[in-house]
Amino acid sequence: MLVAGIKSRPVYGGLNVDIHARRHLFALEGEGALALLDQLKAVGMDVLKTADILYVASGSKAEDHDRTLAALGADSFWLAPTIPVLLNRFHVMLGQAHMGTCIYVAGTEGFIGQAQQAAMNHGVDPASVHSEHRGSAARRVQCVHCKGITDNVTTSPYTCSACGLSLLVRDHYSRRLGAFQGVCIDAEEPGTAPKPEELFP
């Protein structure tokens, strides 16, 4: 589970399918597939008739969630090769969506953050996006110095993929950037960075 008590981090309240919505748009990543499957047990399969599902397997390729999702018989199902490609299609579908569409996002926190960003850019209130964290606790982190973003950070400190500084991962999250903040850990005495510790497995 994710660390609780970070004031700036959004609360992921669960997918909670709204059966009264006219259409359902799902953006799912990795283990996020299971969030939808669990919901269907609760609300039944009827919602799938008006559902579009976008899925990217990421680290869960071996689990074959894509086959399970494809076999559900949703109105549309599309398997994306990578997160950016999924987000691109998600962005287009948001632009074509009508009133009464409910938006659902599930997967790792970095994915949820980017999908919420896409929704926000279409004027959607992020609080109205149904979201559920599934899978790794890995963080997407922005280097506060060079502004470079590193995905799937599991340790603190980590090395910035853009500028190479050793960064402490702070418990401070920007919804707008969909990222945590990384701050140089040995600024006061360069060269004294401690060994990375696996904090976000």
Binding site: K7, S8, R9, D171, S174, R176
Partner: peptide, 10 residues
């Protein structure tokens, strides 16, 4: 873009 509690989070 953060609210009052969020930006004082740390």
């Amino acid at each position: 873009g953060m609210n009052f509690h969020e930006w004082h989070g740390p």
